[in-house]
Simulated assay, not measured.
Amino acid sequence: MSPITPSVYSLQHITAEAAELASKTALRLAEEMGILISVAIVDNGGHLLHFARHDAAQFLTIDVAINKAWTASSFALPSHAWNEIVQQPSLAPLSQTPRFTPVAGGCPLYYQDGIIGAIGISGGSPQQDHYLGNCTVQHLDFQK
């Protein structure tokens, strides 16, 4: 009888160093735009890995940034994509999920075609938050 060998599966995660670099990049880009933000980086399980904010960023931006990142990490979709999805009656109950934030500013982070985490930004308009998330992703090459 041959021994049973378990399948081997490996998940890649964003590193703490890369998460900090992403946060610093987002803060710098926001300063160039003249807005004050909070930025959160979560791993691919939605767990907070790094958080930073401008000193004078509004306090509500803290939880919103974390929850946008969590939302983007959950199904590897930008947080704003959920806004349309939950309009479908069969999926509308998802909007009652705690932490679920279908607002622009959450972007998945990829490495070698796999999701490694997500970034969430809050403090500007939805368009500004989305733009900053995308610019950070592109700047650090966290794309598929």
Rank of each mutant, 00 (worst) to 15 (best):
97 T>N: 02
44 N>G: 05
130 H>L: 13
82 W>H: 09
29 L>S: 07
102 P>N: 12
25 T>R: 06
140 L>H: 13
143 Q>D: 05
36 L>M: 12
68 K>W: 12
83 N>I: 00
25 T>W: 01
24 K>Y: 01
25 T>P: 05
91 L>P: 07
95 S>M: 13
42 V>C: 05
83 N>T: 01
122 S>R: 09
31 E>V: 00
86 V>M: 09
108 P>R: 02
119 I>C: 10
77 L>E: 11
21 L>N: 11
129 D>P: 05
73 S>K: 09
2 S>P: 14
51 F>A: 03
40 A>H: 02
85 I>P: 04
77 L>T: 02
133 G>R: 10
65 A>V: 01
35 I>S: 09
142 F>W: 11
121 I>N: 04
65 A>L: 03
69 A>V: 09
49 L>H: 06
21 L>Q: 15
90 S>C: 06
96 Q>E: 11
73 S>T: 05
11 L>R: 15
63 D>L: 09
97 T>R: 01
136 T>V: 05
101 T>H: 00
54 H>M: 06
60 L>V: 08
124 G>M: 09
117 G>A: 12
96 Q>M: 06
47 H>L: 06
3 P>R: 04
39 V>F: 07
100 F>M: 10
114 G>I: 08
131 Y>V: 07
75 F>G: 05
142 F>T: 14
61 T>N: 14
48 L>E: 12
138 Q>M: 03
58 Q>Y: 08
119 I>G: 08
6 P>S: 04
74 S>I: 08
50 H>N: 13
127 Q>Y: 04
74 S>L: 02
21 L>K: 15
47 H>K: 11
115 I>Y: 00
27 L>C: 08
117 G>L: 11
130 H>M: 11
22 A>R: 02
21 L>I: 13
137 V>M: 09
13 H>Q: 14
65 A>M: 05
125 S>D: 03
105 G>C: 11
104 A>R: 14
57 A>V: 12
108 P>D: 03
94 L>P: 05
